[in-house]
Write a protein that binds this DNA or RNA. Sequence first.
DNA 1: ATTCGTTATGTCTTTACAAATATAACGAAA
DNA 2: TTTCGTTATATTTGTAAAGACATAACGAAT
Lengths: 112, 112
Amino acid sequence: MEYKIKSRIWIEVDNNVLLGEGRVRLLNAIEKTGSLSKAAKSLNISYKKAWTLVDAVNKSAKKPVTQSSIGGKGGGGAILTPYGKSLIEAFDAINKNCWKHLDTQLEKIQSL
Amino acid sequence: MEYKIKSRIWIEVDNNVLLGEGRVRLLNAIEKTGSLSKAAKSLNISYKKAWTLVDAVNKSAKKPVTQSSIGGKGGGGAILTPYGKSLIEAFDAINKNCWKHLDTQLEKIQSL
DNA sequence: ATTCGTTATGTCTTTACAAATATAACGAAA
DNA sequence: TTTCGTTATATTTGTAAAGACATAACGAAT
């Protein structure tokens, strides 16, 4: 019976979403696995969905966020660009800050 | 081509939503119009949807947020309880604070 | 040249959620 | 006792998002 404040933040450009929590999760998984298909598996989403998300991010970001290669040893792969890495870092920092900030506000509602 | 940070906050109790921006908008409209059906019309949503939302709020809040009457002069109506009024006030204050806070964080991303 | 695991897409199906429609009940006032 | 605008609720219909499925291309290694 306790109230909780929850939040979602995201970055938009030209009125469409560039980056939200889900996309950041996916980019993190790409960084960890070096592959879009492995990242998708680790998050239990379809490859198609993962690809669509990454494609949307790359199309609306100022600079590409991932770089991918097709064929060759291991079939190919995907890695984050330096811009991509700093972007998700900044996002996570802002998000955590926001949670902290909201936690301090909760008492305003509890005490009613 | 400018990045923007957007956010949504909401209050949960027992893992389901108690209050979000849409519900607060609706409660504000009820306060202004004194009627759920008029509030729904003013927000261009169906009466059914408005009723379902208000019902969910009243069911999960610690105390009722609206009080309604059926029949009689004017057919009836709905008003906010004192608890409801203070709840939406607190929500709006927290929400605006959050926006302000996020605006100060935007440069972290712009500068990348 | 064949295999392999990947990236890159198109298309079709399902499903969850929103919207539309219908109907009952209520009580003051005329 | 009929009218009126409202609250309250069920049921059906429509739609957009998610998921499933299928297929092509690629390039290093064997």
